[in-house]
Design a protein around this nucleic acid. Structure first.
Lengths: 208, 208
DNA sequence: TCATGTGAAGACATTCACAGCA
DNA sequence: TGCTGTGAATGTCTTCACATGA
């Protein structure tokens, strides 16, 4: 499998979603310039990204939506399912559940964890909440590799360490903190405050 | 003012936060390699980023935390405050409030908007919630330029259009949708589902 | 000696532009 | 004709490596 950039991966994931939408609308063919409008990615970039998947479109009819979708999935996905766990069932954790629960066949939220006794053993959106100290058992037995860190900043590092010790290998970190973890763990930072500051910077730029 | 990349801006914002933390811990000097450990950015990159601010450190004592902090702020910030508004007071909107309300002197959440009558006129974290159709008035009178879009995907586009019509020039979009808006509007996409899929891809990569 | 600031090199990502094909 | 796939060119970002100065 060829080397591919992080940005290309993000775009492939985006294309996949859009193609999925098109399929439910019964659109069966699409050209790169049409996909370009739907994604804000140039058509040359799209064609370049699709090269890695090995799929080829037709210069006459463009891409077959279903076949291309399958090709991207084959490229991105591993065989079998991947479990996801949410750490922290405050507002953020619950909002992730809300956005997530729509479709996503292959990625599944299998458990949530919180220390608050009022939340433990409750079931939200069909997901049971466990005590944080039960994480290791549950993660091992349920094939969970992805963890969403949605706890207050104060305890983010400790919970992240626990996640890694429990077997999580990829973390989506919403807390405004850099985590110190072993290098083989993948961490995606989605620092909520930094995002607002960035928008503030650029929103003002545009006015000038 | 020199041209600077989006990534550099993100890093400068990050440095600023870390420096703020150091200041409250009474650390007054720092070397680029120390800042490197705190940020996961190489020291060469840090020095390169700092060039644009015009601040110079001393090869003997490194950077003066307070002076560097001020220099970065001068570079990033506009004079005066910038108002922020949250659209959608579901779990996500409220979690943004929670993370935000800690410090942030210059950026201030000034209003929230929702269509749900149960939420309108309530005050959370000191922020009043208004009806969405009151947005234009309030945004114009309160100097609000940044909008956080935290509504369900279904209505994201409509609310975004309304935000722009009300005078918002920068949008932080959490919904898993690409927004179609005039090109002068800055949009930062923080697609929550895409983020999980990306982590899933890389968490599995690391195992192999 | 040791860290900064920076020109130059290198690595990486995007766009151009066109051959090939139906 | 009009789109795909892709080599080559361009553009952008990061790292190297060293002169400089205390």
């Amino acid at each position: 499998m060829k080397k591919i950039s992080e940005k290309s991966i993000e775009r492939l994931i985006l294309y996949r979603r859009i193609l999925g939408n098109l399929l439910t609308e019964n659109q069966s063919k699409i050209f790169s310039h049409q996909l370009s409008r739907l994604t804000d990615v140039t058509s040359a970039q799209i064609r370049r990204d699709l090269m890695v998947t090995g799929y080829s479109g037709s210069p006459v009819h463009g891409y077959d939506v279903e076949a291309l979708l399958k090709s991207i999935c084959d490229y991105i996905d591993t065989p079998g399912d991947q479990g996801v766990a949410i750490f922290g069932l405050g507002h953020l954790g619950r909002s992730v559940m809300g956005y997530f629960n729509t479709r996503q066949p292959r990625l599944k939220i299998k458990a949530a964890f919180d220390t608050d006794p009022d939340k433990v053993n409750r079931v939200l959106h069909g997901i049971r909440c466990y005590r944080t100290d039960q994480a290791k058992d549950i993660i091992e037995t349920q094939n969970i590799s992805v963890g969403i860190l949605a706890v207050p900043q104060r305890i983010a590092q400790d919970v992240a360490t626990l996640m890694v010790n429990s077997g999580i290998t990829g973390i989506l970190n919403y807390a405004p903190t850099r985590l110190e973890l072993p290098p083989q763990i993948y961490v995606e930072n989605r620092d909520m405050i930094l995002a607002v500051e960035k928008v503030a910077y650029y929103s003002k730029k545009n006015n000038t």
